[in-house]
Write a protein that binds this DNA or RNA. Structure first.
Lengths: 112, 112
DNA sequence: CTGGATCCAATCAGATACTG
DNA sequence: CAGTATCTGATTGGATCCAG
């Protein structure tokens, strides 16, 4: 059973959801983890040219706190940390696909 | 036929799409226009408590420039301006619904 | 290797006052 | 009624250096 949405509550809930994806790098990170991919910190640094260490660490920690990404630390020297999507994080895929589909429908005349 | 997406191009396209929805008030505005609703500037001002005139005008103009909202001016005194969604703007609804559905699936334990 | 801490620039958002 | 202009504070993102 879905919640009963008003314009306001729906907007708030979508806003909360979008807030989890905001930040210039989060989507890039997520797309590099979709499909069960597992990446190390240094992998993501390599896969996302231009990202600073601060931003990578910060966005990863937010994604982790929000429950989209899980972090696995191997207590060894040198340190090794793996990132992967949680089940819920994977479940974001269809929603992003719907957004992608919408973006494709954009009339050329208005695009800019 | 869908585009062939890589992690990077998909992320970029979704990012562009999300960028159209960013801003603290845009979703509120959109939800007050969904379903073919037509609102005047002052209607939106009333429907969205706390928004300043500057922000309302600014976000409306961005939504218009991005092709989600259309603006109709009645050249009369006092002035009258109506806002409604474009066809493409209306088409955003299913995508936001998918996002809402995803948000509902969030595990309680991780929510915060 | 995996980050944390700090400083700085750019952007965003709010309050207020003013205009056709 | 439907905005615009200006000033100001908050938030975000980036560069660099430091540490376990």
């Amino acid at each position: 059973m879905r919640k009963a949405y008003t314009a306001v509550t729906a907007a708030e809930d979508v806003e909360k959801a979008l807030h989890l994806l905001e930040g210039r790098w989060k989507l890039l990170i997520l797309f590099h983890l979709f499909g069960g991919q597992v990446q190390r910190y240094s992998d993501l640094e390599r896969l996302i040219p231009g990202i600073s260490q601060k931003m990578l660490a910060q966005q990863l920690r937010q994604l982790e706190a929000d429950g989209l990404v899980s972090r696995k630390v191997y207590p060894q020297t040198p340190p090794k940390v793996e990132y992967r999507l949680t089940e819920w994080g994977q479940a974001l895929c269809p929603a992003l696909d719907a957004l992608l589909y919408w973006a494709e429908q954009r009339p050329e005349a208005d695009a800019g």
